[in-house]
């Protein structure tokens, strides 16, 4: 089955982002085709050099870096969300594909399941 995780929350609003990543990793263990779309504040999860331990949390960018270890390599980011925050790809901690709106439409339409953070 095709699973898409639609991540739209910033990394440290409580444990929501970290818990969503835990769920993604389990989907990876289940041998499903898993992709992730970072959109809105979700793109902030990808910023480099986070130090979540200052807030008593795991660093979300480090957890995301585990995705390729679970063979989850289809990582997408919303072009508009990056532009609205004046972010460029070199500020992100992982290689991601930038998708415009048509690209996101196509991605979502291809899914069986869309999960949320």
């Amino acid at each position: 089955m095709r699973f898409l995780y639609l991540l739209r929350r910033p990394p440290y609003s409580g444990s929501l982002a970290a818990e969503a990543i835990d769920s993604i990793l389990v989907a990876g263990v289940f041998d499903q085709r898993v992709s992730v779309l970072f959109k809105d504040d979700g793109v902030l999860q990808l910023l480099k050099d986070q130090q979540g331990q200052l807030l008593g949390h795991r660093s979300v960018n480090k957890m995301l870096a585990a995705l390729p270890e679970y063979e989850i390599e289809e990582l997408f980011v919303c072009a508009r969300s990056l532009a609205e925050r004046a972010l460029s790809l070199d500020q992100l901690s992982l290689p991601v594909q930038v998708l415009d709106e048509v690209g996101q439409q196509t991605l979502i339409a291809a899914q069986n399941v869309v999960m949320n953070d």
């Binding site: 699973f3 769920s23 389990v26 263990v29 289940f30 499903q32 399941v113």
Partner: peptide, 11 residues
Amino acid sequence: VGLGQQIEAAI
């Protein structure tokens, strides 16, 4: 239950 139950249900 574990998170596996969430994924198993979706599948």
